[in-house]
Design a protein around this nucleic acid. Structure first.
Lengths: 241, 241
DNA sequence: TCGGGTTTGTTACAAGCTGTTACCAATTCC
DNA sequence: GGAATTGGTAACAGCTTGTAACAAACCCGA
């Protein structure tokens, strides 16, 4: 039995890190996130068994995020919220949450409920959830997630390294959404903090550009958002297979 | 989608019948019960999708009943109780309950939570019993565990060494799950530590690739997860024989 | 028991991947 | 305009992986 992988989504950094370390101490693999973009970025590259989602994020609504995730994913979601009125709980269950836990919560009870949901899911010998990789199209390009093939508009295949592919997946999961280097690094690696300081992401972006941009000097798709990070300025369609 | 069948267990007859009729009005099939004996009798004759079990029965303990049921059945159980202290809830989750709802409860919320559990159950394909399945299929290939035969998509038989076969079996048992060299070594041998240091797994993987990959230089199934190990990126089905 | 073929692990080397650094260009801010 | 900040990228070094070649171990029939 593999170790359960959780994604902890909360915009209060203290609470977020508290939960992450608490779960890690109890034998889970736990990653932090703060926004829908980060969730998507993380799901694009990582296996996740369960998402603990705070309902009140800075300027996003956990209920809506939950609804959107559920409309395409099957990943278990437990909503966490200071709002404990019945109608608010109902709203959570209606968008497909597996459980709804009120803050403040008893940490042990939280773990028990997480385990209860995981137990139910784990019955099937299925693997951890990972965003369905099928075929993606963007600006004439084609990425086949199953074969890991990137096909240029002219039909030729382009070879990407695994890291470049991972970056591409993160970008495809967040078209038109500016991503900071930190967000990208967090989605790409299991040790988000180690990447701090270096220019690894910049170089990686440069390498991907050199392979998928017609003119890497004037990137059309993988654009720089000066002072912020990068944006994948390209419409993306996902094809079910 | 069939109509969910519930079993309502409560010794307070008014509460019991209230719940039964309430659920029936909301499109469920609901049967009443009052004791462990009745539960067993009902389970012996009927399909049940979920049991709503009151924790405090006349002279029986819902927690213990839940534990006993769980030890032999996989039926979802939601505990209902006037006891709402954290340690009492914990006790419920510990014996395998899927949820624990305090009395008095909001009926709508109860239905929402029942649905949440049922949704999860439906989704996960029913556990396939460990029958002696000996034929596996993966990406056009066929592996007959009984005869130890590996048949290529073109119908030709490929000869694998025993070690290669063992590796294949490990991979077939863990499709889509990244395995470290250590995990593979541990699964293959009884002396995991002896393999440390060497490149035995790498070479073994290379040899298997050369036999089952169409293009061993660009493996489709037995992929490398750089920095981690290997993944069998291939859907696997087991055939009953 | 011997002798050949087969299987398996080890080693060594080549190739490829990735992060870091350093330097330069572009942009922004006074 | 000039300084400061930010981003691009070439070059490099360290590390990981693939695999050929070799040797030891194993198997099996004569």
């Amino acid at each position: 039995m593999t170790i359960p992988r959780l994604l902890i989504v909360d915009d209060d950094s203290e609470m977020r890190m508290m939960m992450v370390t608490y779960f890690q101490r109890h034998g889970f693999i736990a990653h932090p996130a703060t926004s829908e973009a980060e969730i998507n970025a993380h799901l694009a590259e990582n296996r996740v068994d369960l998402i603990l989602l705070d309902v009140m994020l800075a300027d996003e609504n956990g209920i809506e995020i939950c609804a959107r995730l559920r409309s395409e994913e099957d990943v278990p979601i437990i909503l966490v919220s200071a709002l404990s009125a019945d109608h608010q709980r109902m709203a959570g269950y209606e968008v497909g949450a597996d459980d709804y836990i009120a803050k403040p919560f008893n940490p042990e009870l939280l773990i028990a409920r997480v385990k209860a949901v995981l137990r139910r899911v784990r019955r099937s010998p299925s693997l951890s959830y990972r965003r369905a990789t099928s075929v993606w199209r963007f600006g004439g390009w084609r990425y086949d997630g199953k074969r890991d093939e990137v096909i240029a508009p002219d039909g030729y295949q382009v070879m990407l390294s695994s890291r470049e592919t991972a970056l591409l997946k993160v970008l495809l999961a967040n078209p038109h959404i500016p991503l900071t280097r930190e967000e990208i690094a967090a989605a790409l690696s299991d040790h988000p903090e180690t990447d701090a300081g270096g220019r690894a992401i910049d170089v990686l972006v440069g390498r991907l550009r050199s392979k998928i941009e017609r003119n890497p000097k004037a990137p059309q798709m993988l654009r720089t958002e000066r002072g912020t990070g990068y944006v994948f300025a390209c419409d993306v369609t996902r094809e079910e297979t």
